[in-house]
Design a protein around this nucleic acid. Structure first.
Ligand code: MN
Ligand code: MN
Ligand code: MN
Ligand code: MN
Lengths: 158, 158
DNA sequence: TATAAAATATAGCAAAAGCTAACTAATTAC
DNA sequence: GTAATTAGTTAGCTTTTGCTATATTTTATA
């Protein structure tokens, strides 16, 4: 199958309604999703640590575990990674702190998360559903789309 | 930190604007995302196989690899898994076919994908951006939100 | 203050999803 | 019809993200 055939007419009649994208562009779609999946859990952890500090005064591993819905061992391992990445500063058996880089990531993630959540609410999605959808969608929304969502919120809010 | 304290007043003044959700609900958010991530790659493969069959007449592993942006070995491994899951029927060195279950999953995924894509376009997102965002978002949109997106499309299309 | 409980850490296991390298089968070109 | 090219498979490696079980440390209680 050569490059010419690759992006050309389908063999059957009805099926050409929405053609396949060019191979390179198509691959880029999936690559973008894979890249998002590499960073999204880290962002969620950092964002949650920031939220816990803001709302509760401190971020403890056990609260991360219960809110994430995973075991403490899983959190422990992730915290080590966040340390290695320079996002979190922590001492053994003590609660967690964000580095400068961590705080900056937390703020970015929270801002993005809030926009997506408010957008869904403005669309008319029920709050509990909007929260669930936003938790996943936030990592797959481009800056372009985010800006449009923000405008939509402003136009449909009061 | 007990259950009472868990969902109560923050220690600092300004920070209570948007409170943390109850622990159980918060955990459910992340669990839903983790569940979506377990099935999303499978859905993307099945959907792509269906699209290739519809548009090109057959689905070959090499085309899956180039469109997914991964190596053939990766596709080979995934195809074995799709076989085990009863979604794909294939013989060594021959092109791929969907089972009944596979076709049904492909149709569902495509319908959902289309709605998300059209919704983004209706919002005003550029086509190439909309395609990228839709590829990731589609797996994190609830039925409730999807219905609202569909309504939005109908109201804003002609 | 000694002990019980809770929190944290570490070791080892598993599945998923990618990779490269080496091999085999099928198709195409000559 | 053979040789070269293309396509597909398999084995073995790596990283990520979960888990359980066990040890250690900190905190709370009697
Ligand atoms: Mn998230
Ligand atoms: Mn995702
Ligand atoms: Mn899709
Ligand atoms: Mn997708």
């Amino acid at each position: 199958m050569n490059d010419y055939e690759q992006d050309n007419a389908p063999p059957t009649g009805d099926s050409s309604r929405d053609a396949l994208p060019p191979v390179t562009q198509h691959a880029r779609q999936y690559e973008t999703v894979r890249n998002a999946h590499e960073t999204e859990l880290i962002e969620d952890y950092v964002e949650l640590i920031g939220d816990l500090i803001r709302h509760r005064g401190e971020a403890r591993a056990t609260d991360l575990a219960s809110r994430m819905g995973v075991r403490q061992a899983t959190v422990s391992k992730m915290v080590r990674r966040l340390n290695e990445l320079g996002l979190v500063k922590s001492q053994p058996y003590r609660s967690l702190f964000l580095t400068e880089a961590g705080q900056s990531m937390a703020e970015n993630s929270r801002a993005r998360h809030d926009i997506v959540l408010q957008f869904l609410r403005a669309l008319g999605v029920r709050d509990s559903t909007a929260r669930i959808d936003a938790e996943g969608m936030e990592h797959h929304v481009s800056d372009e789309t985010l800006a449009i969502m923000q405008r939509f919120i402003e136009e449909n809010a009061k």
